[in-house]
Amino acid sequence: MNIFFTGDVMNRKKSPSKSSPTDPLKFHILSNRYIVLDGHFEITEYTNDYIEFCSNSLKTRFYGSNITVKELGDESADIEGLFVRIEFS
């Protein structure tokens, strides 16, 4: 029997959702070095040179170098790197 500090891992956290899945994903671009994502999204691809998110069937791809996800939370992500281009598809 495993006892976990935070309870059963397979139970989803019952924290209230801040936004609904239909809400648009918000980008806070702080110069070309730091981007904060706020909303529902999924990381679909991630390498050192680009990172791709999918939200409401809109794919957003940030191109750059040394891309690091500083913090990946429930409904947010802080991304650091040297960004050069944003692509929507």
Binding site: V9, T47, V69, K70, L72, G73
Partner: peptide
Amino acid sequence: FCDVFFKDCRFYGIRLYDIKHK
């Protein structure tokens, strides 16, 4: 299936920091 792993982490409220591809 790393993308699925990240999705599950967010689904179960697990916070990850300093994610770097290598």
